[in-house]
Amino acid sequence: MRVADVRARLERLGSGVTFHVLRLGFASRFLAYLVLHSGTALRRFRLTTAEIYFAGVLSLIIILVSGMFVGMVLALQGYETLQRFGASESLGVLVALSLVRELGPVVAGLLFASRAGSAITAEIGLMKATEQLSAMEMMAVDPIARVVAPRFWGGVLSMPLLAALFSATGIFGGYVVGVQLIGVDAGAFWSQMQAAVDVRNDILNGVIKSLVFGIAVTWIAVFEGYDAPPTAEGVSGATTRTVVTSSLAILFLDFILTALMFTGGTHQ
């Protein structure tokens, strides 16, 4: 009885693992096909422009407002801690480095996943459920090239810009709270920041992070949409999976990238 029980559990675990590995393989093949069939999306760039509008422009408000508040909170919290050590002029450094290296790409990525990623999944999933993708295929138009690829590139191109805007408004928010409200010296705020933030090591690495997150989130979003069971529950489940999986992917990739980029302790 117990042996059979353990056996059944192991079997379930095994088939679960196999299922996910198979799905990852399919998703990779899908990505390769998608990238190889991106000719239409890039040649007729208007298709991609429209998707930059939906993924990027429509995410702007939430990105800007969140960035502003995150920067303001960072300044408040950072000042509390720094002034205990008499280092409140380093407030700019703290706000800028936190945003540029970590919070900008990560929080913008999480917001992007829930705002744009879920919308992409739902849209592609519904197009599949209502046979729009089959109809396209019947018209001898490859739905991956025509529908999926523009959404993929639109998301991938939008994400670094959104992350940069998130960091920039965050730093502005930190400036407003730190300098205008609390009264940290403006000169110290900016000059210490400039001395400490390196373009290649901090800013460029942040941009690379946001690009990687953009690829991961959009890949997950288009794949979940394309792979969604063509029913109402199927699409809603796929939308939830997009947000959950891409949020986990962002945090996991962030750890990997941070470990690769910022190890060695050569930073101040």
Binding site: Y53, L60, L165, S167, V197, D198, V199, D202, I203, G206
Partner: peptide, 21 residues
């Protein structure tokens, strides 16, 4: 989209010039 791209690039420039060194 044009406004968005210009704003995004402006944000990057702000980070590179004003925040970075």
């Amino acid at each position: 989209v044009g406004v968005f791209v210009v704003a995004g690039i402006a944000g990057l420039l702000f980070l590179a010039l004003k925040v970075g060194n």
